[in-house]
Design a protein around this nucleic acid. Sequence first.
DNA 1: TAAATATATTTGTCATACTAAATATTTGTA
DNA 2: TACAAATATTTAGTATGACAAATATATTTA
Lengths: 144, 144
Amino acid sequence: MLNEKFDRYSFILDQTAKKVKQFAQSSFTEKGFDITVDQWAVLKALYETEQLSQKDLARRCGKDQPTLTRIVDILLKKGLAERVIDETDRRSLYLHLTEEGKLKVASLSPIVAEIRMKAWEKLTEKDFEDFTRILNTIYNNLNV
Amino acid sequence: MLNEKFDRYSFILDQTAKKVKQFAQSSFTEKGFDITVDQWAVLKALYETEQLSQKDLARRCGKDQPTLTRIVDILLKKGLAERVIDETDRRSLYLHLTEEGKLKVASLSPIVAEIRMKAWEKLTEKDFEDFTRILNTIYNNLNV
DNA sequence: TAAATATATTTGTCATACTAAATATTTGTA
DNA sequence: TACAAATATTTAGTATGACAAATATATTTA
């Protein structure tokens, strides 16, 4: 393959990832969700598996620990999640959603799914499969 | 298509874009380039088309104007670029590379292309075409 | 058991993304 | 021409991402 092409894919990839995030964020804002897209990712992960330590939650969300700490700080301030010290290992914290947090995830989930759907207009199941396969391959190629 | 799938693509897309950036950044750091990946994008755009206004440069790099202002500030401090007031429109600034900046882009370009290549191991020309087509379609679907 | 090592979290710093607002200048219009 | 609207850039504030270092606690090992 020609090198020239390759200098472009990273740009398109980056721009598209940004656009996906922007689109979701502006939908969130417009609908008054009062959370960021990244905060949503953390809330969703906590909803699906309660009682995660911050470390596990970070891995699950694809975020590093300092970033996660800060996002969780915000979720605490918003009353959506709680930190509980793990008495079996006092270095660790378990996180879980408050009732308000659970309600929020349950009520927003279908709307978020709708928002995410929009990206796939004019694309096929096969496109989706190719897309995820290629992304995973790239990820693994670079995951040294 | 099932909604459930769709909640995942944005995650994979985001993680892969991050990984591509991280891989490039750690290669840059390891090789002592002394610039960030985003600073590189701006330098490359300036190298390809000198005399861009900041506004045009921002569009070309896919960055917003405040972000670009700050990146350019850094490039000035590093002695790689210069701002020149456009006398025909004193609101505007033209940007161009210093000699040092030009040398930097010329010498790093082939190494950066190498770094970018790594992502495409085990993938085909057809994959590349599908990938860029799908990314562009998603971008346009969300570009309201 | 004491010291060294490992682990979970937090804090600090810098770079980037986005929004809104401020500033300077130009253009359009009454 | 004077004023309103538009444009280019910068500044400010908040959130996130990456990396290094600090802190507290656990585990391993001499």
